[in-house]
Structures are given as structure tokens and as C-alpha cells.
Design a protein around this nucleic acid. Structure first.
Lengths: 340, 340
DNA sequence: TTGTAGGCGTTATCAA
DNA sequence: TTGATAACGCCTACAA
């Protein structure tokens, strides 16, 4: 096959230099004559030389790549949360000349396990980012056991030596509940996701704690779980409306769910913010443009992703991370969907 | 450093076999004794052996990886379109044991060029998927010149030997315009994206052609361009409302824009579907759950992405692609936002 | 300041 | 049916 790209050898040959010198010049070592270095740079550029990644990886035993596996059964899956998250990871990685490997697999599936194994044991990535952490998450155990650098967006229950960023879901929910209760809402439903998710656990706890401190008894019929999609939100709201005494407010595990819920509410001819209150979590762009604008707990997804990426890169490069555990408070954005 | 993963050498040593035999056994060659093969498989599994990717890549001169660069200035960027698209690409790739490399860069930026160069000339990927094609797209020329396999979601104007999938934006728009005009709308605005985008070009042409065939004169003040976000849609709608004679209908280049537009309309106290009609393009999940549900031209993003991925893998593996150019018709989903 | 040589872990060619 | 050996392209002791 015809060779398309020039190698370091081609550059060396052209300049009558050794491969070593070219390599060292390009890598900025200071034991190369200034004239030589300039010559090398010029020629390399002229010849369009770009180091072969596989060779470099093999030699240096690193890939300059980090990985992220979308925890989603992806047919029909769509949430701007992930676009933002991926964009953030990738931007920060790019800035350090790292690449981002992405794949998707349903949580706790066989495919997910195989993917992680392939990436980790095949040396496909130097580090891994995790989110949508489960209460008892095999991924965290696996990565720790394999000494694969990793950061997570939420901590699991068991994991004490957690490295990453956690948005305080519990406290956020508490604030949201206080807001609703202050507005006079009492019969408040919680529409969650998989109860096995750390965020579901925390947000539900916040919900319950919020009710309790207001002296409102929690009604199990008002606590439902679905799949964090607008579809799911829509269907679940329908179920709640079928109750003999439907809720007058619904808080959702994320904005996407809330948008589906709003749709169902509209169909029932109710005015959101007056007849019923709806709230979400995430602060995705569309939440500001929902009708009416959605009250939500805003977390800066893009920036969180960037920071996660940067933390991971620090670990990967062997430097010590001064701040291993970051806790952030989500910001309660009161908009008209709760009568704001 | 302590060696974490076993190599093929370890497996060979343990079995007192040559590396060659182990390699050939694992790769399923038929010149290996059955007993040997079984032994090799068992031991490899037991030792947790997974081939090192970098070494394999270097030797075989392929990466088993395809790439996709998000054409987006990514701060604050979020569109479920991309989540679905990425999920589709990655799912199909996974099925063939390929990985998906993802990055983001603003269209036509320096960073974008560097990224493509790095991936292509550094041998990071075996093929590349492109969407949001520009009218005169340097990426297509570059990839062709570098003999890098690639597929695109839209064809460019210049590119005759286009490989990929194109959704017939022009014809879709024509159908949508006919629908609106039949409903009695005459003063219809077009809210596009970057005019340099192939989809903008086609959708705008469809819009104009639709007007023309109904004998309606096109008003330049009603043709505006923004950035394909809900933010942009919101702002642009405000501008249109400030016209001395505002439009009575607005068709948008995509659903995300339309959602922002709807928000502005609501703020003006108008009833969508009665006082004004709004339509989008894409058929993202949330379009069904907008308030009211959004009339849109539906394209099966996830499946298109899967198909693109599969076409690319066919090319990469050297097989011939029977059907290089696929043209699809978007489906007009008439919902209440246009009075449906 | 520059060059020689060895090896990262695989796969592929050729011989045994 | 198996094994020895040579690359793939790069980095890095070590030597010159």
C-alpha cells in the first residue's frame, strides 16, 4: 500500500539527521542546537509530519485519550444533558491534546461490562469519566481494582475515597420543596428515575425530608419512578392524574422529564403555575424556553464536565489533585411553572 | 512500573507455546490444532488477556475507531439532535467492535482544522462522519485528498461523488409550506441558521419555492438567520415581532430553534396554532411534548446515524458499498402548533 | 550536540 | 500444525 503520511524517519532522512535528533527537537528538549531545531520544525511542518498515535502510545504506554460511556439504552434516547456533558469533556480534553472516546451501553448490562473491560484492559484509554452513578456501582469497584484513573459526577454510597464533583441534590431538593410549600402547595408528587441511581436516591430523600420538616405526611402514591425521558414524564403524569386525589404539584428528577409532564398537564387543560406547579432539575437551555418557563435546580453541566475532565487529566498525568472532592450547590431558578 | 495486564507473551509462556500460535489461535485461523485453540482460549480468558490496542493498531495500520467532530462552539451548546446522533453512531460502531472518537470544534475554526489534521494524519481514526455540511466544505476536500474514508449526512454543493445520507430538506419544506398555505397562512417567516450550511440553503430554497408556487411574494424582512439554539430562536422571534407587520407563521430550521420561538410567542400572549403557526425540523423527542406539540419535519436521527456508521464501516473494511447515496424524505408531522 | 540501538505488543511472512 | 523473526513508528538510555 502506498504510504500516505510521512513518518519521523522521512523527516530525518530529508535532513540527514538521526531519528533521535528529530524526535528530541520536536519534543522541545534543550540539548538540540537552535539551528537544528528550527530546521526540524520547518521541515516537519512542510512535510505535514504528524506523529503516529499508535506508535507513540505503544512506546509511552499511554493513549492521550479519556473515555466516557453513556449510561443509556440509546434507541430513542435524547437529552441535551448529554450533549452538554460530552461537549464539556471534549473541550477540556482537547485543550490538553487529549481525545475523548465515547460509547453507549445500557446501565448494568452485559454490553456495558464488556465495553469497560475492553477499554481498560486493552489500554484504550488513560482514564474514564463516570456519571449517573448507581448506589452500589460495580464500575467504581472495577476501575479502582484495575488502577484505572477515574472521576465521577456523583459519589456512590459505599465509595469513601470518591474523586469528582457532586452536586448537592439533597439540599437542592430541600430548597425547592421549601419554595413550593411556602407557595401553599401540599400535595406534591415526586417523579424520579431508576431508584438505584444516586441522584434519584438523594433527590427523593430531599423531597421526603422537605415534606417532613413542613409536617406533611408523605403519600407513597405520589412517589413514582420512570426513565428520565419526556416520554416517561408524560406517561407518569397521566398516571398521577388518574389518582382519586391528584397532586397539585410535581417535582421531577430532571428537566426532560418535567417537559413531558408539562405536556400532559396542558392536555388536561390546566394552567401551569396557577392550577398546578411543575419543577425540574438540571437547568438545560430548553427549561428557560418551556411554556411556561420551568422552575428548576440549575447545575452548570458544561462547566462541571470541563472540570471533571481537567481533574481526570491531572490524575492521569501523575500530578496530585489538591481538591479531590468538590461539592456544589445547585441554584434554584424560580420561574413561572411554580407560580413565580 | 508493575505490569497490570497480561500480554500475549505471558499467555504463550504459560502454555509453552510460541507467541505466533497463540495469536493465530485467538484470531481464529484454521491452521491451529483444535486442542491447542481450546487451551489457548481458556488460558487467555483465565489470565484476563485482552490484546493491546496500540500494538495491534501499529502493526495492522488500523485503529478500529471512527471519529466525529461536533460542529459547535460548545459553551452552552445543547441540542438533543447531537445526543441521538452520537448514540446512533456509537451503537452501530460498537456492534462491529469499533470505537467512536468524539470532539467538538466551532465550524471553520482553526481548532477544527487542527483536530481533523491530528486525527487523520496522526492515524487516530480509520474513518470520519460529518454532518452540518457547509456549501463549500473544506472538510470534504481535505478528507478526499487524504484518502480518509468518510460519510456525510448531507452532500455539499460541489461534491458530486458524495457518500452518505441526505434528507430531502427542500422537498420537506415544500410540503410544510403547502400545509401552512392551505391553512390560510400567507405572511410566513423563515428562521434559519448559518446561511453557509447546506441544510439552511435547502430549507430556505424550499421555503421560497413554496411561497412562489402559491403566488406569494417573498419578503426579505421575514428571512432571518440565527444559531440554531432555543436562545437564538427566542431572540429572533422578538425581532420579528418588532416588525411593523409581523409574520403570522414562522418556520424554523430545527426544533430547538422553534422551541425558543414558541417561548417568545407565549410571552406575547398569543395562542400558538390559532393566532400564529410555528413549525420546526428534526422531530426530536421534545417536539412532541412542546406546548402545544410542534409541527415538524421528522427525520429518524438515531437510525440515520446508525446507517451512516454502518456505511462508513463498510468502506473502512474495504468492502464495496452497494448504495453510496441514500436520499430520504422527512415526514411531515402535523401537530397543533400549526392549528392541526 | 548528535547518533546507535533496543524495545513497547502485535501481526504476518516464511521456514521447519 | 507450530515457531523464529521481522517489522509497524516512536521514544529514550546510553554512547560517541
Amino acid at each position: 500500500m502506498y504510504k500516505l503520511h510521512s513518518t519521523i524517519r522521512d523527516v530525518a532522512k530529508r535532513l540527514n539527521l538521526s531519528i533521535t535528533t528529530v524526535s528530541r527537537a520536536l519534543d522541545g528538549y534543550d540539548d538540540v542546537a537552535d539551528r537544528t531545531r528550527k530546521l526540524v520544525f520547518a521541515t516537519a511542518k512542510e512535510m505535514g509530519y504528524i506523529p503516529n498515535r499508535a506508535a507513540r502510545q505503544l512506546r509511552r504506554q499511554r493513549t492521550d485519550t479519556i473515555g466516557y460511556i453513556l449510561p443509556a439504552d440509546s434507541a430513542g434516547f435524547a437529552d441535551p444533558f448529554f450533549s452538554e456533558f460530552i461537549a464539556g469533556l471534549s473541550d477540556e480534553a482537547s485543550a490538553y491534546h487529549f481525545d475523548l472516546l465515547v460509547s453507549a451501553a445500557p446501565p448494568d448490562s452485559k454490553g456495558e461490562k464488556e465495553l469497560y473491560k475492553r477499554w481498560v484492559q486493552g489500554g484504550k484509554v488513560d482514564g474514564i469519566v463516570i456519571n449517573r452513578v448507581r448506589l452500589n456501582d460495580w464500575r467504581l469497584r472495577f476501575l479502582a481494582r484495575q488502577s484505572m484513573p477515574h472521576v465521577a459526577m456523583e459519589r456512590s454510597l459505599s465509595k469513601l475515597d470518591f474523586v469528582g464533583i457532586e452536586v448537592d441534590s439533597f439540599n437542592g431538593m430541600l430548597k425547592l420543596m421549601a419554595h413550593l410549600i411556602e407557595r401553599g402547595y401540599k400535595r406534591i408528587a415526586y417523579i424520579g428515575g431508576d431508584p438505584n441511581l444516586k441522584i434519584d436516591h438523594d433527590r427523593l430523600s430531599g423531597y421526603q425530608s422537605g415534606l417532613k420538616s413542613a409536617g406533611i405526611e408523605s403519600d407513597p402514591a405520589l412517589i413514582v419512578h420512570t426513565n428520565m425521558t419526556s416520554e416517561g414524564g408524560y406517561r407518569t403524569a397521566e398516571l398521577l392524574f388518574a389518582l382519586s386525589v391528584p397532586p397539585t404539584a410535581m417535582v421531577c428528577i430532571n428537566d426532560t422529564t418535567a417537559i413531558g409532564v408539562m405536556h400532559a398537564v396542558h392536555e388536561h387543560g390546566m394552567i401551569i403555575g396557577r392550577d398546578i406547579a411543575i419543577a425540574g432539575f438540571d437547568g438545560i437551555a430548553d427549561s428557560a424556553h418551556a411554556s411556561p418557563p420551568l422552575t428548576t435546580l440549575d447545575q452548570p453541566i458544561y462547566n462541571i464536565a470541563r472540570k471533571l475532565s481537567s481533574m481526570l487529566l491531572t490524575i492521569v498525568s501523575g500530578k496530585t489533585l489538591e481538591n479531590k472532592q468538590i461539592k456544589m450547590q445547585p441554584q434554584l431558578l424560580i420561574r413561572s411553572s411554580t407560580g413565580g
